[in-house]
Simulated scan of single mutants.
Amino acid sequence: MTEKIRIKDIAMRAGVSVGTVDRVLHERPNVSESARKKVEEALKEMNYQPNMYASALAYNRSYTFYVLIPKHDQLAYWEEIEEGVQTAVNALRDFHIAAHIEYYKRFDEGSFEEVTDKCLQNNPDGFVIVPTDIEVTRKFTDKLHGIGTPFVLLDSYMPDLRPLAFFGQNSFSSGYFAARMLMLIANQEKEIVLMKITKNGQMMSKQQDNREVGFRHYMRDHYPSIEIITLEMPFEATRAEYDELLENFFAQHPHIHQCITLGSRAHIMGDFLLRTNRRDVQIMGYDMVGKNAECLRLGSVSFLIAQHAYQQGYFCVNALFRAIVLKKKVEPVNYMPIELLTKENVDFYRREQL
Protein backbone atom coordinates (compact mmCIF):
# COMPACT_ATOMS: atom_id res chain seq x y z
CA MET A 1 0.00 0.00 0.00
CA THR A 2 1.33 3.45 -0.94
CA GLU A 3 2.27 5.49 2.15
CA LYS A 4 0.03 8.50 2.69
CA ILE A 5 1.80 11.78 2.06
CA ARG A 6 0.97 14.43 4.64
CA ILE A 7 1.08 18.19 4.15
CA LYS A 8 3.69 18.24 6.94
CA ASP A 9 5.92 15.92 4.85
CA ILE A 10 5.62 18.14 1.80
CA ALA A 11 6.46 21.23 3.87
CA MET A 12 9.61 19.61 5.26
CA ARG A 13 10.70 18.51 1.77
CA ALA A 14 10.14 21.98 0.30
CA GLY A 15 11.52 23.91 3.28
CA VAL A 16 8.39 26.01 3.70
CA SER A 17 5.58 26.25 6.23
CA VAL A 18 2.54 23.96 6.35
CA GLY A 19 0.36 26.99 5.64
CA THR A 20 2.25 27.71 2.43
CA VAL A 21 1.76 24.15 1.20
CA ASP A 22 -1.94 24.35 2.01
CA ARG A 23 -2.30 27.59 0.02
CA VAL A 24 -0.51 26.07 -2.99
CA LEU A 25 -2.59 22.89 -2.93
CA HIS A 26 -5.83 24.86 -2.79
CA GLU A 27 -4.67 27.53 -5.26
CA ARG A 28 -5.07 30.33 -2.75
CA PRO A 29 -3.27 33.70 -2.99
CA ASN A 30 -0.44 35.18 -0.89
CA VAL A 31 2.28 32.73 -1.92
CA SER A 32 5.58 33.99 -3.32
CA GLU A 33 6.70 32.64 -6.66
CA SER A 34 9.85 31.09 -5.16
CA ALA A 35 7.86 29.31 -2.43
CA ARG A 36 5.32 28.05 -4.98
CA LYS A 37 8.11 26.57 -7.13
CA LYS A 38 9.65 24.82 -4.10
CA VAL A 39 6.31 23.25 -3.22
CA GLU A 40 5.60 22.20 -6.81
CA GLU A 41 9.06 20.59 -7.09
CA ALA A 42 8.50 18.72 -3.82
CA LEU A 43 5.09 17.50 -5.03
CA LYS A 44 6.65 16.21 -8.23
CA GLU A 45 9.54 14.49 -6.45
CA MET A 46 7.16 12.82 -3.99
CA ASN A 47 4.70 11.83 -6.76
CA TYR A 48 1.93 13.46 -4.78
CA GLN A 49 -1.61 12.58 -5.96
CA PRO A 50 -4.19 14.80 -4.28
CA ASN A 51 -7.46 13.36 -3.03
CA MET A 52 -9.72 15.62 -5.08
CA TYR A 53 -12.88 14.37 -3.39
CA ALA A 54 -11.54 15.12 0.08
CA SER A 55 -10.33 18.54 -1.05
CA ALA A 56 -13.71 19.40 -2.55
CA LEU A 57 -15.50 18.33 0.62
CA ALA A 58 -13.09 20.32 2.79
CA TYR A 59 -13.66 23.42 0.69
CA ASN A 60 -17.32 23.28 1.82
CA ARG A 61 -18.92 25.49 -0.82
CA SER A 62 -22.07 25.00 -2.84
CA TYR A 63 -22.46 24.82 -6.64
CA THR A 64 -25.43 25.70 -8.81
CA PHE A 65 -26.04 24.30 -12.30
CA TYR A 66 -28.88 25.09 -14.68
CA VAL A 67 -30.34 22.55 -17.10
CA LEU A 68 -32.07 24.19 -20.09
CA ILE A 69 -34.50 21.97 -22.02
CA PRO A 70 -37.55 22.55 -24.25
CA LYS A 71 -41.00 22.59 -22.72
CA HIS A 72 -42.57 19.17 -23.17
CA ASP A 73 -45.87 17.45 -22.60
CA GLN A 74 -44.74 14.51 -20.46
CA LEU A 75 -42.61 13.13 -23.27
CA ALA A 76 -40.68 10.17 -21.85
CA TYR A 77 -37.34 11.17 -23.42
CA TRP A 78 -37.22 14.48 -21.55
CA GLU A 79 -38.70 13.02 -18.38
CA GLU A 80 -35.91 10.45 -18.25
CA ILE A 81 -33.31 13.18 -18.74
CA GLU A 82 -34.81 15.02 -15.76
CA GLU A 83 -34.70 11.83 -13.67
CA GLY A 84 -31.06 11.31 -14.61
CA VAL A 85 -30.25 14.89 -13.56
CA GLN A 86 -31.95 14.37 -10.20
CA THR A 87 -30.15 11.05 -9.64
CA ALA A 88 -26.81 12.77 -10.22
CA VAL A 89 -27.71 15.56 -7.78
CA ASN A 90 -28.68 12.99 -5.15
CA ALA A 91 -25.43 11.09 -5.67
CA LEU A 92 -23.42 14.30 -5.22
CA ARG A 93 -25.39 15.76 -2.31
CA ASP A 94 -22.32 15.74 -0.03
CA PHE A 95 -20.75 18.29 -2.38
CA HIS A 96 -23.74 20.67 -2.16
CA ILE A 97 -24.64 20.42 -5.85
CA ALA A 98 -27.94 21.91 -7.00
CA ALA A 99 -29.30 21.55 -10.54
CA HIS A 100 -32.31 23.65 -11.54
CA ILE A 101 -34.26 22.64 -14.64
CA GLU A 102 -35.57 25.55 -16.71
CA TYR A 103 -37.82 25.26 -19.75
CA TYR A 104 -37.91 27.33 -22.92
CA LYS A 105 -40.38 27.22 -25.79
CA ARG A 106 -38.87 25.42 -28.74
CA PHE A 107 -38.71 27.55 -31.92
CA ASP A 108 -39.20 30.68 -29.79
CA GLU A 109 -36.07 32.84 -29.80
CA GLY A 110 -37.54 35.24 -27.26
CA SER A 111 -38.35 32.43 -24.82
CA PHE A 112 -34.81 31.03 -24.97
CA GLU A 113 -33.26 34.45 -24.42
CA GLU A 114 -35.65 35.25 -21.57
CA VAL A 115 -34.87 32.01 -19.76
CA THR A 116 -31.11 32.27 -20.23
CA ASP A 117 -31.00 35.90 -19.09
CA LYS A 118 -32.91 34.95 -15.93
CA CYS A 119 -30.49 32.11 -15.21
CA LEU A 120 -27.41 34.30 -15.70
CA GLN A 121 -28.66 36.75 -13.09
CA ASN A 122 -28.06 34.05 -10.47
CA ASN A 123 -24.37 33.60 -11.44
CA PRO A 124 -24.49 29.80 -11.76
CA ASP A 125 -21.38 27.65 -11.93
CA GLY A 126 -22.34 25.71 -15.07
CA PHE A 127 -25.03 24.86 -17.59
CA VAL A 128 -26.45 21.83 -19.37
CA ILE A 129 -28.01 23.07 -22.62
CA VAL A 130 -30.31 21.43 -25.13
CA PRO A 131 -29.56 23.85 -27.97
CA THR A 132 -32.18 25.58 -30.05
CA ASP A 133 -31.27 27.25 -33.37
CA ILE A 134 -27.46 27.39 -33.53
CA GLU A 135 -27.20 31.16 -33.95
CA VAL A 136 -29.64 31.81 -31.12
CA THR A 137 -27.75 29.37 -28.91
CA ARG A 138 -24.41 30.87 -29.95
CA LYS A 139 -25.41 34.30 -28.57
CA PHE A 140 -25.83 32.68 -25.19
CA THR A 141 -22.79 30.40 -25.27
CA ASP A 142 -20.59 33.33 -26.36
CA LYS A 143 -21.66 35.07 -23.15
CA LEU A 144 -20.72 31.95 -21.18
CA HIS A 145 -17.29 31.83 -22.78
CA GLY A 146 -16.87 35.53 -22.00
CA ILE A 147 -17.48 35.03 -18.27
CA GLY A 148 -15.74 31.65 -18.07
CA THR A 149 -18.83 29.56 -17.23
CA PRO A 150 -18.58 25.99 -18.61
CA PHE A 151 -21.48 24.29 -20.34
CA VAL A 152 -22.36 20.81 -21.58
CA LEU A 153 -24.49 20.18 -24.67
CA LEU A 154 -27.20 17.54 -24.62
CA ASP A 155 -29.24 16.00 -27.45
CA SER A 156 -27.70 17.94 -30.36
CA TYR A 157 -23.94 18.26 -30.93
CA MET A 158 -22.81 21.67 -32.17
CA PRO A 159 -18.99 21.66 -31.99
CA ASP A 160 -18.73 25.27 -33.19
CA LEU A 161 -20.17 26.34 -29.83
CA ARG A 162 -17.09 24.87 -28.08
CA PRO A 163 -18.83 23.07 -25.21
CA LEU A 164 -17.00 21.47 -22.31
CA ALA A 165 -18.60 18.17 -23.37
CA PHE A 166 -21.45 16.64 -25.35
CA PHE A 167 -23.66 13.67 -24.45
CA GLY A 168 -26.03 12.07 -26.95
CA GLN A 169 -26.12 9.81 -29.97
CA ASN A 170 -24.12 10.31 -33.11
CA SER A 171 -27.15 11.51 -35.04
CA PHE A 172 -25.77 10.81 -38.51
CA SER A 173 -24.71 7.27 -37.58
CA SER A 174 -28.03 6.72 -35.84
CA GLY A 175 -30.00 7.67 -38.97
CA TYR A 176 -27.70 5.54 -41.13
CA PHE A 177 -28.18 2.60 -38.77
CA ALA A 178 -31.97 3.10 -38.73
CA ALA A 179 -32.09 2.93 -42.53
CA ARG A 180 -29.97 -0.21 -42.59
CA MET A 181 -32.21 -1.96 -40.07
CA LEU A 182 -35.40 -0.86 -41.81
CA MET A 183 -34.18 -2.24 -45.11
CA LEU A 184 -33.77 -5.70 -43.62
CA ILE A 185 -37.55 -5.96 -43.94
CA ALA A 186 -38.21 -3.31 -46.62
CA ASN A 187 -35.63 -4.15 -49.27
CA GLN A 188 -38.28 -5.35 -51.76
CA GLU A 189 -40.39 -2.20 -51.50
CA LYS A 190 -40.69 0.40 -54.25
CA GLU A 191 -41.56 3.21 -51.87
CA ILE A 192 -41.41 3.93 -48.14
CA VAL A 193 -42.75 6.81 -46.08
CA LEU A 194 -40.70 9.13 -43.90
CA MET A 195 -43.07 10.56 -41.27
CA LYS A 196 -41.95 13.90 -39.81
CA ILE A 197 -43.46 15.59 -36.79
CA THR A 198 -43.09 19.30 -37.52
CA LYS A 199 -44.02 22.68 -36.09
CA ASN A 200 -44.43 25.54 -38.54
CA GLY A 201 -42.77 23.34 -41.15
CA GLN A 202 -39.67 22.71 -39.01
CA MET A 203 -38.37 19.45 -37.58
CA MET A 204 -38.50 19.25 -33.80
CA SER A 205 -34.73 19.18 -33.28
CA LYS A 206 -31.37 19.49 -35.01
CA GLN A 207 -30.74 15.93 -33.94
CA GLN A 208 -33.61 14.70 -36.12
CA ASP A 209 -32.32 16.75 -39.05
CA ASN A 210 -28.94 15.03 -38.74
CA ARG A 211 -30.58 11.62 -38.47
CA GLU A 212 -32.37 12.30 -41.73
CA VAL A 213 -29.05 13.13 -43.40
CA GLY A 214 -27.66 9.77 -42.27
CA PHE A 215 -30.85 7.97 -43.29
CA ARG A 216 -30.89 9.46 -46.78
CA HIS A 217 -27.16 8.87 -47.20
CA TYR A 218 -27.65 5.14 -46.64
CA MET A 219 -30.68 4.99 -48.93
CA ARG A 220 -28.92 6.88 -51.70
CA ASP A 221 -25.90 4.58 -51.54
CA HIS A 222 -27.72 1.25 -51.21
CA TYR A 223 -31.32 1.63 -52.39
CA PRO A 224 -31.41 4.58 -54.81
CA SER A 225 -34.44 3.19 -56.68
CA ILE A 226 -36.73 3.21 -53.63
CA GLU A 227 -38.84 6.35 -53.47
CA ILE A 228 -38.95 8.12 -50.10
CA ILE A 229 -42.31 9.84 -49.62
CA THR A 230 -42.40 12.51 -46.91
CA LEU A 231 -45.45 12.76 -44.66
CA GLU A 232 -45.51 15.85 -42.42
CA MET A 233 -47.61 15.63 -39.27
CA PRO A 234 -48.17 18.82 -37.21
CA PHE A 235 -46.80 18.62 -33.67
CA GLU A 236 -49.90 19.98 -31.94
CA ALA A 237 -52.65 18.20 -33.94
CA THR A 238 -55.45 16.29 -32.25
CA ARG A 239 -55.98 12.55 -32.59
CA ALA A 240 -58.90 13.17 -34.97
CA GLU A 241 -56.71 15.43 -37.13
CA TYR A 242 -53.95 12.80 -37.22
CA ASP A 243 -56.51 10.16 -38.21
CA GLU A 244 -57.76 12.31 -41.09
CA LEU A 245 -54.23 12.97 -42.35
CA LEU A 246 -53.35 9.28 -42.21
CA GLU A 247 -56.60 8.17 -43.86
CA ASN A 248 -55.94 10.55 -46.75
CA PHE A 249 -52.32 9.50 -47.01
CA PHE A 250 -53.02 5.77 -47.24
CA ALA A 251 -55.85 6.40 -49.69
CA GLN A 252 -53.35 8.18 -51.94
CA HIS A 253 -50.54 5.66 -51.31
CA PRO A 254 -52.19 2.23 -51.00
CA HIS A 255 -48.93 0.37 -51.73
CA ILE A 256 -47.00 1.77 -48.74
CA HIS A 257 -45.97 -1.01 -46.35
CA GLN A 258 -43.02 0.53 -44.48
CA CYS A 259 -42.66 3.74 -42.50
CA ILE A 260 -39.80 5.38 -40.61
CA THR A 261 -39.97 8.32 -38.23
CA LEU A 262 -36.82 9.85 -36.80
CA GLY A 263 -38.44 11.11 -33.61
CA SER A 264 -40.27 9.63 -30.65
CA ARG A 265 -43.85 9.61 -31.97
CA ALA A 266 -44.02 6.39 -33.95
CA HIS A 267 -47.07 5.60 -31.82
CA ILE A 268 -49.17 8.18 -33.71
CA MET A 269 -49.18 5.99 -36.79
CA GLY A 270 -48.84 2.76 -34.80
CA ASP A 271 -52.02 3.45 -32.87
CA PHE A 272 -53.86 4.40 -36.06
CA LEU A 273 -52.82 1.15 -37.75
CA LEU A 274 -54.05 -0.91 -34.80
CA ARG A 275 -57.41 0.86 -34.62
CA THR A 276 -57.99 0.57 -38.39
CA ASN A 277 -56.68 -3.01 -38.49
CA ARG A 278 -54.00 -2.25 -41.09
CA ARG A 279 -51.62 -5.13 -40.42
CA ASP A 280 -49.57 -4.74 -43.60
CA VAL A 281 -47.68 -1.57 -42.55
CA GLN A 282 -44.63 -1.67 -40.28
CA ILE A 283 -42.86 1.23 -38.58
CA MET A 284 -39.33 2.06 -37.41
CA GLY A 285 -39.14 4.73 -34.68
CA TYR A 286 -37.16 6.11 -31.76
CA ASP A 287 -37.36 6.12 -27.97
CA MET A 288 -38.80 3.91 -25.27
CA VAL A 289 -41.92 6.04 -24.88
CA GLY A 290 -44.65 3.98 -23.23
CA LYS A 291 -47.01 4.26 -26.22
CA ASN A 292 -44.20 3.30 -28.61
CA ALA A 293 -43.38 0.24 -26.52
CA GLU A 294 -47.02 -0.85 -26.54
CA CYS A 295 -47.19 -0.57 -30.34
CA LEU A 296 -43.96 -2.56 -30.51
CA ARG A 297 -45.45 -5.35 -28.42
CA LEU A 298 -48.63 -5.38 -30.53
CA GLY A 299 -46.75 -5.45 -33.83
CA SER A 300 -47.61 -2.12 -35.50
CA VAL A 301 -44.06 -0.88 -34.76
CA SER A 302 -41.26 -3.23 -35.82
CA PHE A 303 -38.20 -1.51 -34.34
CA LEU A 304 -37.37 1.20 -31.83
CA ILE A 305 -33.96 2.77 -31.32
CA ALA A 306 -33.23 3.57 -27.68
CA GLN A 307 -31.26 6.70 -26.69
CA HIS A 308 -30.45 6.16 -22.99
CA ALA A 309 -31.91 9.52 -22.02
CA TYR A 310 -31.61 8.78 -18.29
CA GLN A 311 -27.86 8.26 -18.58
CA GLN A 312 -27.50 11.41 -20.67
CA GLY A 313 -29.03 13.53 -17.93
CA TYR A 314 -26.87 11.89 -15.28
CA PHE A 315 -23.61 12.13 -17.18
CA CYS A 316 -24.10 15.82 -18.09
CA VAL A 317 -24.36 16.86 -14.44
CA ASN A 318 -21.51 14.54 -13.49
CA ALA A 319 -19.29 16.08 -16.20
CA LEU A 320 -19.85 19.57 -14.77
CA PHE A 321 -19.09 18.24 -11.29
CA ARG A 322 -15.84 16.62 -12.39
CA ALA A 323 -14.67 19.68 -14.30
CA ILE A 324 -15.74 22.42 -11.87
CA VAL A 325 -15.53 20.79 -8.45
CA LEU A 326 -12.81 18.17 -8.94
CA LYS A 327 -10.92 20.18 -11.57
CA LYS A 328 -10.56 17.09 -13.74
CA LYS A 329 -10.53 16.87 -17.50
CA VAL A 330 -13.64 15.40 -19.08
CA GLU A 331 -14.06 13.64 -22.41
CA PRO A 332 -15.35 16.27 -24.88
CA VAL A 333 -17.52 14.00 -27.08
CA ASN A 334 -19.51 11.20 -25.47
CA TYR A 335 -21.70 9.23 -27.86
CA MET A 336 -24.37 7.02 -26.35
CA PRO A 337 -24.95 3.48 -27.66
CA ILE A 338 -27.38 2.88 -30.53
CA GLU A 339 -29.60 0.03 -29.34
CA LEU A 340 -32.27 -1.71 -31.38
CA LEU A 341 -35.42 -2.87 -29.62
CA THR A 342 -37.98 -5.34 -30.96
CA LYS A 343 -41.04 -6.94 -29.37
CA GLU A 344 -38.82 -9.90 -28.43
CA ASN A 345 -36.40 -7.85 -26.30
CA VAL A 346 -38.32 -4.70 -25.29
CA ASP A 347 -39.33 -6.12 -21.92
CA PHE A 348 -35.67 -6.81 -21.09
CA TYR A 349 -34.54 -3.26 -21.82
CA ARG A 350 -33.61 -1.59 -18.56
CA ARG A 351 -32.13 1.74 -17.67
CA GLU A 352 -28.59 1.20 -16.48
CA GLN A 353 -28.43 1.91 -12.76
CA LEU A 354 -25.88 4.62 -12.05
Rank of each mutant, 00 (worst) to 15 (best):
M46Y: 13
L184S: 07
Q311F: 11
P163M: 06
E241S: 13
I268M: 06
S173W: 06
D108L: 00
E3I: 11
I147S: 14
R278D: 01
R13W: 08
D73M: 10
E191T: 05
Q282T: 08
F250D: 03
K118F: 00
M52F: 14
M204Y: 09
A11P: 03
M288A: 15
S171T: 02
Q353E: 15
T261Q: 13
F172H: 11
M203F: 10
L57P: 03
C316G: 00
A11S: 06
R28F: 02
V152P: 03
N318E: 09
L296R: 13
S300T: 07
E294D: 01
L354S: 12
P224E: 05
I283M: 04
E41A: 15
E109S: 14
A88F: 08
V330P: 11
M195V: 09
Q207P: 04
G146E: 04
P29D: 03
I256W: 01
F315Q: 12
T276H: 15
T230V: 12
A11Q: 06
C259K: 08
N210P: 07
L341F: 02
I81H: 01
N277C: 11
G15C: 03
Y314P: 03
I101E: 06
F348L: 06
Y310Q: 13
L57D: 04
G290I: 12
G148S: 03
S62W: 08
R279D: 06
H257L: 10
P224L: 11
L326Q: 05
C316H: 02
A42E: 10
L194D: 02
R216K: 09
V21P: 05
R322F: 01
F348K: 13
G214K: 13
R93A: 00
F177T: 09
H222G: 02
V346L: 04
A306R: 12
S300G: 01
R279E: 08
D9M: 14
H145K: 04
A99V: 08
I305K: 08
V317G: 04
N248I: 09
S225T: 02
G214N: 13
T132A: 01
K196L: 05
M46S: 13
E45C: 09
E33L: 12
E294Q: 04
T149Y: 07
L92V: 08
L320T: 02
Q207K: 14
F166W: 00
T261C: 11
T198L: 13
P29F: 03
E109W: 07
L164W: 04
L326V: 05
E339L: 05
T276L: 08
L92F: 06
V330S: 11
Y314N: 04
K8Y: 06
F140Y: 06
F127L: 06
D133I: 08
A240Q: 15
I256D: 00
I10V: 05
T261W: 10
H72R: 11
Y104V: 09
V24C: 06
A91I: 08
